[in-house]
Design a protein around this nucleic acid. Structure first.
Lengths: 216, 216
DNA sequence: TTATTTTTTTAGACTTGCCTAAAATTATAA
DNA sequence: TTATAATTTTAGGCAAGTCTAAAAAAATAA
């Protein structure tokens, strides 16, 4: 079994791997709010356990085994988030920190039964896909609003930023999962995006548009 | 907040306090499968945090604050056990280890919502009372079979030993929570107890009789 | 291409929680 | 009451995971 710290590193490396082939020491340090020297130590340890590929100064990638472990953590995290929202009626922006703790509950049987209890959901409350018990995960196929063309329309299905402040902003603007939006225009000057939703127009910044994912 | 190790110590001290005024270092060491010297270290730390009363060579007791923390851990443990049995359909002897991990999930709001979701249960699957959100707990008022008089009858409502092997034995003998039993005779020679249940007789050892609690 | 900056690693130290072995204290027995 | 046994504490050490400061390597700029 892996320690809590090891699990957190694997999850961070998995997340960063989605947008980079080889993950750098500094990226991991930033993601985990720790120092680069600590990352070097831990990455060595994970390499010894054959969970990551690592060569000095060359960055890190997950091995097959490491990816499997990471996907399992992601599965647990997202299933618990789903439980918290669907059964305990938390808001989608309230569940991340709780799930950070719950994802480390180790029993596989428990998580499989939770999966069944929830009716084998395929996405968590933020629209992210939930890996199945074999670690298969649906490729997201979601695009940030910032990169789609004007006059396309889609359903909000995920976010790229899970911080409470961002989710609360979305909540307040009613930009929630499942809402259909149409991208009307992207202003050249600062990349502000003009959206239509519920027959009303609203503007969002490039930053926000980057972190709202839609299924077209 | 308290560390995982601290929480486990508080829980152990709480448990041992039910049958002893001052808990000894060795008792705690045995309960947690650790060494006496480790216990001394941790007990000092808990005393510094005002969670236990401690004087060298004099044993340990929980302070009001310490007891509140301990009861909260017990509450979390028992509510999760209830959830695992009622919603995820685990057997009563399968849930202890999982709940040992789940009891450390820290959110109070989470546990209160779980409580509501389960319908405010008052006892866990082993018959132990669940403290409410203010730390009030129903005095057990349960007696081990070994100490009741012949020809009394009662309902199995708790166990004094939560090990898998013991619970499996009970399961196999159908000595489960809610079953009504009548104590027919206690053999003087070795304190073997003769029970009647479902109109059949069965014998249990003094050891087992000590660990089955009935409400009369 | 060399100099400077940035990134990464190494070295050494700290905290938590545990250990063993020895010393101190308390309990028990002769 | 004194000797022996058991319990508890102290002393010193170890592993995990973190940190700071300095050295090494790589990337970038002049």
């Amino acid at each position: 079994m892996n320690t809590l710290a090891e699990e957190n590193y694997l999850k961070a490396i998995y997340k960063l791997s989605l947008t980079a082939r080889n993950v750098s020491t500094n990226q991991i340090a930033a993601e985990l709010a720790t120092k680069a020297s600590s990352v070097t130590d831990m990455v060595r340890k994970l390499a010894d356990k054959a969970l990551v590929n690592y060569a000095r100064y060359q960055g890190v990638s997950l091995t097959k085994t490491g990816e499997k472990v990471a996907l399992n953590i992601v599965r647990r995290h997202r299933l618990w988030e789903h439980f918290l929202v669907e059964k305990l009626h938390f808001k989608w922006h309230e569940v991340h920190e709780m799930a950070e703790e719950m994802e480390h509950i180790s029993s596989t049987e428990l998580i499989n039964r939770l999966d069944a209890f929830m009716g084998y959901p395929t996405r968590d409350p933020h629209g992210d896909p939930i890996p199945d018990c074999d670690g298969n995960i649906k490729a997201s196929a979601l695009k940030p609003i910032s990169i789609v063309k004007a006059n396309t329309s889609g359903v909000i299905s995920g976010v790229g930023d899970h911080t409470t402040s961002f989710l609360q902003y979305l909540e307040q603007q009613k930009l929630t999962i499942g809402k259909r939006v149409t991208i009307k225009e992207i202003i050249g000057y600062d990349n502000t995006v003009i959206l239509e939703m519920d027959n009303k127009q609203l503007q969002i910044s490039r930053e926000v548009a980057n972190n709202i994912l839609i299924a077209i």
